[in-house]
Design a protein around this nucleic acid. Structure first.
Lengths: 227, 227, 227, 227
DNA sequence: AGCTAATCGAGACGGTACGTCACGTCTTTAG
DNA sequence: CTAAAGACGTGACGTACCGTCTCGATTAGCT
């Protein structure tokens, strides 16, 4: 049960790691997660199988890291200067930190909570509908649903940082009197996020901007008639 | 890719079908879905592999049917005479029902929408937390997330019938003036259901009765302060 | 330690068995035994690896059987009529018996023991020097030297039947008064055979017809001066 | 295929060389030659793999040198002063000697050729039956049978020096009139040695003192009846 | 009641991928 | 420059399952 009998990570080949990330993402995108094999990744990356087995415990773990790396690089590219002028939130702007993605942008605070949420949720809808991201994200999520350990990592490294942004924004709204003072932001956010996830994961009905807007309206206004 | 070249189903061996259901469920319960193999099911069921390949297109399809069968039998056993007139709670034991079963009971209508919803959602929480159902349900859900076709079947046969009950109850609430007249019940229900599913699937935080109650309160009352 | 959990040999594919023999012999001839792999044999034979592992315990065992089959077919071809007119010995002429080779010819008996032995030993020299047989025979012998079980099979199926011919001929010579009455034929034959084998295996000095003749002369006449 | 690009052997670590010899012999003794690996030897010797690859071309070469070294040390220990004038029996402990060791003793010459040969051949039988020597000697021999280059080295360094002793003794016998004047000693010796080697390598029948005696009798006296 | 055709248990087959092992090369750090 | 250490690309190992195919032996459903 020792996680891997840790090899000397200081001697690790960066070139191989990069090539493996690229190959993994490419293959999952092209053929889907099921048809992607470790042998395939190794071959495509020009790398020995053992080099994968040495550093990762499973195909899912490879993909997860590749995914995190992708997000980190995307984030780094989008905001190499940082500076914290506006909605700077998490503080996790360390360029080397793989835990990143869109997380550090924060949710805008224009004073209009409904508008801000709609903006962000519409962006989420677009992201979920992006066919490029779809395959790997679904694969990873499905894997996490079945494999508790992987799921925990997924939540910790990808989901929680994003949810934290909502908590921050909702707390600000609370101080501004736009959110019930007695509402728990951590729960409130689930009313907003979960319906989108639900539609996306289970493909019950199409996931649109209109749907995002409606969810915000219903969640903020409540389903019961206003007196 | 021929749909299956349907063999003569009238000659089908019922004994084998039953044995395959049992073996499939047992193996998934014991070893998890990933480690369950078609060969294993065949061996355990004392059946030739071909008998499985003849009637099902995939391991997931076998499990799905086994699951539906299990639910159907459970339902049949629980209520051969039907009924469910009042505050019948256990009705929500379904979740697994193939349109038979709890689906017929519907959601109770005591006139108090919040109370009725809490009752039902608490039952759903209990069901999701039931360790016996957990492995196969997760497996099936995860599979459906990745395999669109299977997912569609999952939604159609398992999920939609349940959601229809919510639509019915919410429409009644609307007529009773307990729900905004302009609210779309099909969307409204997602505000209630999705947060539970979200916590269960992604294991972000514990899924409790209290959480179910809170969701109902937030969803009905709205997150914005009442003026 | 169960030899192989015996699969049903009546369903065995003859085509595959043949193809495997051919591939094995071809590859050993082309690249040598060391560089011949089970994967290579399977690929060349157009056969799944498992089909080899199902029926043979090792690469050496495959080659051994291929070799025996080769010898059996060669023998069958050379004498399909049998008939036992002359030195018919072993009686093992069953066309289906893989234990065969040159064995059934027997050693000629012209009445002149020395001449007969020289004839046979010269043929053996030629056979050992045949470059086609060399690689597989050396491989098999070497393998048998290290692996006692395989060696026993080698001796039983290939060597012993041949040595039996010498025993027969030597016994006849004994009755004809051309061999010491007190000599054990089974040991006597080793004086004749072993030196050839020795030179061939260890490559100490060239293995020629002249050497074979000399061995016969020395062995029959003795090294000590005749009184 | 460059012979080895000989590194500066003056800087070679003696400690490592010794450790490699020991590890190699130990592992071959424990697990057999096939299961002994270069990585295993390196690990057991506490040595880098490269240190082996730098100085030896193959696993067989390592074992061969280890073997020669073992014999040399054994010989050095047994007789730093030399001697061996009479019925010295243990002299034949060599068999393994790299021209040092027993090779110097030669075969005793008591005037009775048959007795002397029996003495020496019985010692050889004992040596071949020694379970300690068996594994590595078989391994080396088998390797030499397949690998011509290694075989040549084996013959040159181990076998030829021993055979030379027989040539010497037989020539002496010839001068003493105990061996046919027209017999080639180099060939004659093979009549004596080869049968033992044959039984040992191929395991046809047990290798005993009695067998050695019989071989001497048959070879000297001849198989044909004395007139 | 007997015939015939499909289904059944069984499992061999050609394959693909698995995860492990050892190969021989290369690179890094220490002496 | 050698040595220990060990990561690397490579490739074979032997195993597990895949989905297809082929075998008798039941076992319906029709004549």
């Amino acid at each position: 049960m020792a996680p891997h009998k840790a090899p000397d990570s200081s001697r690790r080949s960066d070139r191989s790691r990069r090539a493996i990330y690229d190959a993994a993402l490419a293959l999952v995108g092209e053929s889907g997660y099921r048809r992607t094999t470790i042998e395939g990744i190794a071959a495509r990356a020009g790398v020995g199988k053992q080099t994968i087995y040495r550093w990762w415990p499973s195909k899912a773990a490879v993909l997860m890291e590749a995914f995190l790396d992708l997000a980190a690089r995307a984030a780094e590219e989008a905001s190499p200067q940082a500076g914290g002028t506006g909605g700077e939130t998490g503080g996790e702007t360390g360029g080397t930190d793989p835990q990143a993605g869109a997380a550090e942008y924060g949710i805008p605070d224009t004073g209009d909570l409904a508008a801000d949420l709609k903006l962000v949720l519409r962006a989420t809808v677009d992201e979920l509908n992006d066919p490029l991201m779809e395959a790997p994200t679904r694969a990873l999520t499905a894997e996490g649903i079945v494999d508790a350990k992987l799921g925990a990592e997924f939540v910790e490294k990808l989901l929680d940082p994003q949810l934290a942004l909502y908590v921050t924004r909702l707390r600000a709204a609370q101080e501004a009197g736009q959110l019930r003072p007695d509402a728990d932001p951590r729960i409130a956010l689930e009313l907003l996020i979960a319906p989108l996830t639900h539609r996306w994961l289970l493909r019950t009905l199409p996931l649109t901007h209109a749907y995002a807007d409606t969810i915000v309206d219903y969640a903020l206004g409540g389903l019961a008639p206003r007196s």
